[in-house]
Design a protein around this nucleic acid. Structure first.
Length: 633
RNA sequence: GGGCUCGUAGCUCAGCUUGGACAGAGCGGCAACCUUCUAAGAAGCAAAGGCUUCAGAGGCAAGUUGAUGGCCGUGGGUUCAAAUCCCACCGGGCCCGCCA
């Protein structure tokens, strides 16, 4: 595929184009006036009240050329060939202010907004990225804390896709962990007749087991035994744990699907062990001389990695209490770090993809299968990504950093800087969230949250429209998901967030439902106005661009850069904020300029075209957030 | 001992990576529009049985509009210009296991 073809397949970026033209014009004008031009790109920016695009380049030059910035600005302005997209250049206080040609710019923005593509950038260039999330232990239901991980993972995946990457959505299942062993012990000793949703039942078992451990010291030893047996291929415990974990994951997917969160692939820790990925990883590490096997001392009999051999060790790793990380314990079992290294060597194609894959027991609602690594199955082209993005809480920043630096030690070209920890602050709930104690039993499950939100949405809708019961239900569900997701996404990811019912169920102000409402409003206007999208590219904006309209046009033109930035910086909140700003801009627009009752046909068409462009832009932003763009609500 | 992270309006947050013109949202609070009562009130108007204005105390599921609200944690430094960059400090959260 040629790059030109790609360019036609993506949503164009009018603001960036204009900024580039302006920046080039400044460069030429400066050259002409005898100034050396350097890095003036950085001096260009959107301006709120002084024209549309501004440059402060004159300030930089003032000292070197011993002139006042005002003189320089005036001189550069005089020498400038005004770019086509600009109608007027003014200077104020040494700033160069560019006023865009409103009609022309509006036309570009509208026609790019109406592009049929969902891809807004070629930044990704089809590089393959694996996004791992939420990797919740397969022995309990999702709660309001794990939900943040799942939602962030979904949106990060959407962002990468929109920016032209090939995205694989992976959910890692730790079926060999202590938690599963505990639940398994419970299944074998406390009852094996599940009732209700399986993840809930298993989670309750897990809480009971933890009580049993507190009450009786023997239980702990028995659990340890179960854990050991689970990790051996072919044992009853191994089979049973996989079965229980799979049933639990299937139940968790009911939750996931209700939030419209889908994955492509499940990778099971058990399969990593079965496929001997560990051994292969260790062999590779041994060849690279990054592991040691101490014969004596504290780590006698272990396989370890010494972080001190990393050059340019960052302060975070230099000051650790121990330089040495254990990969294999002296009893021959691998640590989590070792499994993680093996897992990522597979993800990044450093180890051959020897997994077998099959379809998981539940299908996605969109009809596509979820594939899973599996003892039985066929080879498939998963893994082999260039970048691995791990959505993991900030508490695990250090292990993630160790993982990333372990790959630096490996030194392979593919391994450098290819592991990205997307860290997020954890969710605080009054009284704390603990799977072990079963806090989620108090109603803090993701399922219950959605249920509450749906019932609130339903009562808020009342009987405003004559809609069928199914339609009311469908809309209420969409609104509920929107309100929850937006609340989870509006913060910077690194910030901790205090979960409160009041805010999670917020439909007002900067909220998901507000964005949906504005979208629905626009769609209704287009229907009422009998607007035909296909006529739009010829819409004439020469008489219809007042400030209210142009603010909307400009806002729409920023979409590409917002999405690229959100992707580059792993900052989904930028998109949430953009959507809500766009919604309120549109609201001001239609409250202040008549659309359907515009004074003539030309103006009416132009305003309908803007409305249509808004609807599409909003739908794109909502799509990235994983929120439905509703037509009615 | 070391490190990571957060600190911006009453509350919840954006902006910081790439310094730029008055630091932005949302919520809450305030005011107005609406409305009830005191009320058979007072004043004025009225070919009238009502209307207008004024005072006090409330109400409202919401709505709309307006105004208000900030030594950007503290102190230094760099710069024509600092919330933004650098240094130090203070306060909150988290992390440094042959747990996962």
């Amino acid at each position: 595929m040629t790059s030109m073809k790609q360019n036609n397949d993506i949503v164009q970026a009018p603001y960036e184009e204009a900024a580039k033209e302006i920046s080039e014009a400044i460069a030429k004008a400066m050259e002409k006036s005898g100034y050396r031009y350097d890095a003036s790109d950085a001096t260009i920016g959107m301006s709120k009240s002084f024209g549309d695009v501004s440059s402060s380049i004159a300030f930089y030059l003032a000292k070197a050329y011993k002139k006042t910035p005002m003189d320089i600005a005036a001189q550069v302005k005089g020498a400038m060939k005004v770019p086509e997209c600009v109608s007027e250049v003014t200077t104020e206080n040494a700033y160069l202010n560019f006023h865009l040609d409103r009609a022309g710019f509006s036309r570009k923005v509208v026609s790019s907004a109406l592009s049929s593509s969902d891809i807004v950038s070629v930044m990704g260039n089809h590089i393959k990225v694996t996004v791992e999330a939420p990797s919740i232990n397969p022995n309990k239901p999702w709660h309001v804390g794990s939900l943040r991980n799942a939602i962030l993972g979904d949106v990060i995946s959407n962002l990468y896709r929109a920016c032209g990457y090939d995205v694989e959505r992976e959910n890692y299942i730790d079926d060999l962990g202590l938690q599963v062993a505990e639940s398994l012990w419970g299944f074998m000793h406390l009852g094996n007749t599940p009732e209700g949703k399986f993840d809930y039942w298993l989670g309750e078992q897990y809480v009971k087991v933890n009580k049993a451990i507190e009450d009786n010291a023997n239980v702990k030893a028995e659990v340890a035994q179960v854990l050991a047996l689970m990790e051996q291929d072919g044992t009853y415990e191994a089979k049973l744990s996989r079965e229980l974990a799979a049933k639990c994951v299937a139940a968790q997917y009911e939750t996931s699907f209700s939030y419209h969160i889908y994955h492509d692939l499940l990778v099971w820790e058990g399969d990593i062990i079965r496929e001997r990925l560990m051994d292969k990883a260790l062999a590779a590490l041994e060849r690279l001389n990054v592991i040691e096997k101490p014969k004596e001392g504290k780590y006698a009999g272990c396989v370890v990695m010494n972080l001190n051999t990393i050059k340019d060790l960052p302060p975070a790793l230099a000051g650790l209490r121990e330089d040495v990380r254990v990969l294999m314990r002296s009893d021959g079992t691998p640590t989590y770090l070792a499994k993680d290294i093996a897992h990522h060597m597979w993800k990044l194609g450093i180890l051959a993809n020897t997994f077998k894959y099959s379809e998981f027991m539940v299908k996605r609602p969109d009809g596509k299968p979820i594939y899973t690594t599996s003892p039985e199955g066929a080879p498939m082209p998963f893994g082999n990504s260039r970048i691995a993005i791990n959505i993991i809480g900030s508490a695990q920043a250090l292990p993630q950093m160790i993982l990333a630096y372990a790959f630096k030690m490996i030194g392979a070209e593919r391994a450098e800087n290819s592991i990205v920890h997307m860290s997020y602050g954890e969710v605080d709930v009054e009284g704390g969230l603990s799977g072990r104690k079963g806090t989620w039993l108090a109603g803090y499950t993701a399922d219950n949250l959605l249920k509450e939100a749906i019932s609130k949405a339903q009562s808020a809708m009342g009987s405003r429209f004559k809609l069928s019961t199914e339609e009311v239900e469908r809309i209420a569900k969409s609104v509920a998901v929107a309100s929850i997701k937006f609340e989870y996404l509006r913060f910077s990811p690194e910030k901790r967030f205090q979960f409160t019912w009041e805010r999670a169920l917020n439909f007002e102000g900067a909220s998901g439902p507000y964005c949906q409402y504005m979208h629905a409003r626009a769609v209704r206007m287009l229907e009422d106005g009998g607007f035909d999208e296909r006529l739009e590219p010829n819409a004439d904006f020469s008489t219809a661009i007042s400030d209210y309209e142009f603010v909307l046009v400009k806002q729409m033109s920023f979409m590409n850069s917002i999405i690229e930035k959100a992707c580059r910086e792993l900052r989904p909140n930028a998109v949430a904020e953009y959507a809500s700003d766009l919604a309120s801009t549109f609201s001001k627009f239609y409250e202040n300029v008549p659309v359907l009752k515009a004074k003539d046909e030309k103006q009416r068409n132009a305003r309908l075209a803007l409305t249509s462009a808004f609807a599409r832009t909003m739908a794109r932003a909502l799509g990235i957030l994983g929120i439905d763009a509703l037509h009615k609500m």
